[in-house]
């Protein structure tokens, strides 16, 4: 049996940049399920979410040179890739078409958490979002889960950008406070 190497975050990043398979294996073993959780909250379909997860790891592998430790932790960077890739999948034409077929009553872009019974509603951020009041919840849905920019949300909801910004910050702060770590 081969010895499994352990890495500090610095060593891991350096080894990934050296294209070491062992480092990739370690990265996957340690982060795949957490990132999968992040993806599933945005892409509920398990088959699609697994595809997204693969896409995310390929991106991480191929874009590791772009990761700058000064800007934040490795996980934060990977989380960002996972979230944006998930949103790209959700907002992609194919996904939107299939969603329309499934839920004909929705003429707006569906709110993943609000429009469908979601088996993973009770975990992670998604669970915390449900505890928020409606005016906060919709902002988190549109920005975090659907990737709309704040000015787009302001237009969609017909409220001032400053208000969107303030409410969103407050909502996220509340979310964080619900899980004191």
């Amino acid at each position: 049996m081969k010895a499994v190497p352990t890495y500090t975050e610095q060593e891991l990043v350096r080894s990934l940049k050296l294209r070491e398979q062992a480092a990739f294996s370690y990265l996957y073993d340690h982060y795949s399920s957490a990132l999968h959780g992040v993806i599933q909250q945005i892409v509920p379909d398990p088959d699609v979410s697994v595809d997204v997860l693969q896409e995310v790891f390929v991106k991480i592998w191929r874009q590791i040179e772009q990761y700058d430790p000064v800007k934040g932790r490795l996980f934060t960077w990977m989380f960002s890739i996972a979230r944006t890739t998930s949103i790209d999948t959700v907002r992609g034409k194919d996904w939107r078409n299939s969603q329309k077929n499934n839920s004909l009553t929705d003429d707006l872009i569906p709110l993943a958490g609000a429009t469908q019974p979601n088996p993973i509603d009770d975990i992670g951020l998604r669970k915390m979002v449900h505890s928020l009041k409606e005016e906060h919840k919709v902002l988190v849905e549109l920005s975090y889960f659907q990737g709309y920019k704040q000015d787009e949300i302001a237009q969609m909801l017909n409220i001032p950008l400053g208000t969107v910004k303030t409410r969103l910050r407050a909502a996220l702060l509340l979310l964080r406070q619900q899980v004191k770590l």
Partner: peptide
């Protein structure tokens, strides 16, 4: 960032082995 990582870990969803 630490909070995000911990939260994500708490919401982790296992992946089948063949994906790796």
């Amino acid at each position: 960032e630490a909070w995000l990582a911990a939260t994500a870990n708490a919401g982790a969803v296992p992946v089948s082995d063949n994906v790796k």
